[in-house]
């Protein structure tokens, strides 16, 4: 699958999906006008790719400064998919990057991670 790179805008995050390397990154702010229009095809492509993996190492990094509640629903679904792929014999590592003083974003990541059974979750703090 071709890699997907989308630049960040004021209301949507930078997307960097490297399918060959199984490295994925979402970075920035996310409160798009239409969540489905922005994430729909991306998630579809990702799910299709992930379904075909076996014995792979997958790295997914989230570095979000702000996201709205519609985006939260997309993220929850993404965590579920990643956990499912991890349960099918893949090593899935989720990294949640937050600014060191952003308790709220840290909490959000931990809440998403609570239900993970197979994927590993790492919280990474960076300077604000």
């Amino acid at each position: 699958m071709d890699n997907i790179k989308i630049d960040a805008t004021e209301r949507s995050p930078e997307i960097d999906f490297d399918f060959a390397a199984n490295r994925f990154r979402v970075k920035g702010e996310s409160y798009p006008e239409d969540v489905t229009a922005f994430y729909g095809e991306l998630i579809e492509a990702l799910d299709e790719h992930l379904r075909g993996l076996k014995g792979a190492t997958v790295g997914f990094e989230f570095e979000l400064v702000y996201f709205n509640s519609s985006t939260a629903k997309v993220l929850m679904g993404l965590f579920d998919s990643l956990d499912e792929v991890a349960g099918q014999g893949n090593d899935v590592r989720i990294t949640w990057v937050v600014e060191e003083d952003d308790d709220n974003m840290e909490e959000m990541g931990e809440e998403f991670a609570e239900d993970l059974e197979n994927a590993t979750f790492e919280l990474k703090k960076i300077e604000s």
Binding site: V35, N68, S69, S70, A72, K73, N104
Partner: peptide, 12 residues
């Protein structure tokens, strides 16, 4: 939307 807007407001 996601139907979570009001809950999100309440939490913040």
């Amino acid at each position: 939307g996601a139907g979570v807007g009001f809950i999100d407001i309440a939490r913040r």
